Computed example of a mutant assay.
Amino acid sequence: MHIAQKAACVSLLLSVMMGGTAVHAQVPPATTVPPAVLGQWVTRNHKGVFEITRCGDNLCGKLVGLNYSDGIPRDQTGRSECGLPMLRDFVRDPDQPDRWDGSILDPNTNHVYQARMWVNQSGQLKLRGYLGIPMFGQTQTWLPYNGHIGPDCKMST
């Protein structure tokens, strides 16, 4: 079975498992199957939601939702953190195609760190920020976000 055929079978199976209708499903070629990291993810402390999208040939992510009670959180320069592009230039790792390598901005310090992200078997996004090599870093676990984001980037609770 060719790779494209395997990808089509997996995609069709996932469509059926997620409640889609297999009768009318059209499976895109294997090269256009979106990576599992695309979508909205809530941070480990449930204070923010990031949306990971395609940016040309790469992936990027920005803060789209915040959990706050008094005024929109702002960065060091006074700008709203809402919409801040913090995940930048992620490219598929050639040795591990399920992983993406790029950089992440810490808005509190304006430092940019190298980063790696992937989705584990439980459907959680793993994001590892590091200096130099991944061994010297920290991994956060983010969950898919299915809530609502209201006006002014406010997350529903």
Rank of each mutant, 00 (worst) to 15 (best):
Q5V: 09
Q5K: 12
C9A: 15
C9P: 07
L13F: 11
V16D: 04
M17A: 13
M18N: 12
M18H: 12
G19H: 06
H24K: 13
A25F: 13
A25E: 15
Q26C: 12
Q26H: 13
T32D: 13
T32E: 12
P34F: 02
P35C: 01
P35K: 06
A36S: 15
L38T: 03
V42C: 03
V42N: 06
G48E: 03
F50T: 05
E51H: 10
D57T: 14
D57G: 15
D57E: 15
D57Y: 11
L59W: 09
G61Q: 00
G61M: 00
G61F: 01
K62A: 13
L63I: 08
V64C: 10
G65D: 00
Y68Q: 04
S69G: 04
P73H: 10
Q76C: 11
G78S: 05
S80G: 07
E81S: 06
E81F: 08
E81D: 06
C82M: 13
G83N: 08
L87A: 01
D89T: 02
R92I: 04
D93V: 03
P94K: 11
Q96D: 15
Q96V: 14
D98P: 08
W100A: 01
D101H: 11
D101C: 14
S103E: 15
I104C: 07
L105F: 03
D106K: 09
P107I: 01
H111Q: 13
V112M: 11
V112C: 09
Y113R: 03
A115M: 04
W118N: 05
V119P: 01
V119F: 10
N120V: 00
G123C: 01
G123F: 05
Q124P: 10
G129Y: 00
I133D: 02
M135A: 15
Q138F: 08
Q138P: 04
Y145D: 00
N146Q: 11
I149D: 01
G150V: 04
D152K: 11
D152V: 02
C153Y: 00
C153N: 01
K154T: 01
T157G: 15
T157C: 12
